[in-house]
Simulated assay, not measured.
Amino acid sequence: MVEHSASVIVKAPVHQVYSLFTHFNDFPKFMSFVKEVTYRDEQRSHWVVKVLGQYEWDAVNEDWIPDEQVGWRSTRGLKNAGRVKFRALGPERTSVDVYLRYTPPTGPLGGLGENLGINAYFDSILQKDLHHFARMVEEAPAGALDPMSSHYLFHQESAAQKGEITPRQRAAMAKDPMMSPTALTERQQKIIQENERRQRLKAEQEAAQQERIRRERDLQREQDAILAQEAIKRRQEEAEREVARRKAATVPLDPRQSYAAWARGLGDRDGTRLRNPNMGQDPMTARRQVKPTIAAKPPTTE
């Protein structure tokens, strides 16, 4: 058997993605290669696809796990089976992985066709229709569980819009109350209203974004102006300090102090006498206060 696979990430909760995928009979409304899915009963369905030729089979559901997996296998017609697995990546993100395997309908010639490029062609179609499914889900209202609520049904590449569905599919759609002319008109009006609402919301969001950008730009300008003023103030203060340093350097020194500094460098003791004239005296008496001497009285003669 030949195997194919495809994957896509849908921006919606896993329960909604799972529920919308299980409406097989709505596949021709948004997929391109599925021309018919009609129900025999709750477990059996009839499929018609067109990929380099038209193929049909009856299928029975198997291995269904709510919000996790759906599966099927053919019971008549093109021999095939498949699984679709759903995995929540977050509250609003779901991974969808599709796995198909089938026996080429023309035996060895079909296998030769796979080797000549049909395999890659089918992979591209499968991936493309899986992206159509993701868009159908994302353009449905939040929490919607019926594909008919999605704005993406009957897009230009869908089999139904191109008129490529089978007579049985067309008859089944005609019996669907949601496909009556009145229901379709109401649906179209809702789509128009919803599109207008989304456009208004988008315009409001863009306006809010522009206002936020303008405020951030104004705030940045104010901060730049403050920083520029502070830089000017710092330069002025530095200039004033430089002027003060230069002015201090030009004050004439006392020649005696200059000589004293020079003389001390040479070890001249006279250089220190200017400030300490008693330096040559005994250290114990050099700074002692000298008491005035009292002259002796001359002897008196009697």
Rank of each mutant, 00 (worst) to 15 (best):
V2D: 02
E3W: 06
E3M: 06
A6N: 09
S7H: 06
S7W: 05
V8P: 06
I9P: 01
I9R: 08
I9F: 07
I9T: 11
I9E: 05
P13T: 07
Q16M: 05
V17A: 03
Y18V: 10
S19K: 15
S19H: 14
L20N: 00
N25Q: 14
P28H: 10
K29D: 07
V34D: 00
E36N: 03
V37R: 09
T38S: 11
Y39W: 14
R40F: 15
E42Y: 04
W47N: 07
W47F: 12
V48N: 09
V49C: 03
L52M: 12
G53T: 03
Y55K: 06
D58H: 10
D58R: 07
A59Y: 06
A59N: 05
A59G: 03
I65K: 09
E68V: 01
E68K: 12
G71R: 07
R73A: 07
R76V: 00
K79R: 13
N80T: 09
V84K: 02
F86C: 07
F86Y: 04
R87D: 01
R87A: 04
L89A: 01
L89T: 00
L89I: 08
P91D: 11
R93T: 05
R93S: 13
V96M: 11
V96P: 11
V98Q: 05
Y99I: 02
T103R: 14
P104N: 06
P108N: 04
P108I: 12
L112V: 09
L112C: 06
L112R: 07
E114R: 11
Y121I: 08
Q127P: 08
K128P: 08
H131D: 10
H132K: 09
H132Y: 15
A134K: 13
M136V: 04
A142S: 13
L145S: 08
M148K: 11
S149K: 11
S149E: 12
Y152W: 10
Y152N: 02
F154Y: 09
Q156V: 09
S158A: 10
S158R: 11
A159N: 03
Q161V: 05
G163N: 05
G163D: 08
T166P: 02
R168P: 07
R168S: 04
D176V: 03
S180Y: 00
P181T: 01
T185I: 00
T185S: 03
R187D: 02
Q189S: 00
K190M: 12
Q193S: 10
E194K: 14
R197V: 03
R198L: 14
L201H: 11
A203G: 02
E204S: 04
E206T: 01
A207V: 03
Q210F: 03
I213D: 12
I213G: 06
R214L: 15
E216W: 05
E216V: 04
D218G: 01
Q220E: 14
A231I: 12
A231P: 09
K233S: 14
Q236C: 10
E238T: 01
P252Y: 09
D254S: 07
D254I: 04
Q257L: 12
Q257Y: 04
A263K: 01
G265Y: 04
G265S: 09
G265L: 09
D268K: 15
D270S: 13
L274V: 12
M279E: 10
Q281P: 00
R288V: 00
Q289A: 05
V290K: 15
T293F: 11
I294N: 03
A295S: 04
P298S: 09
P298C: 04
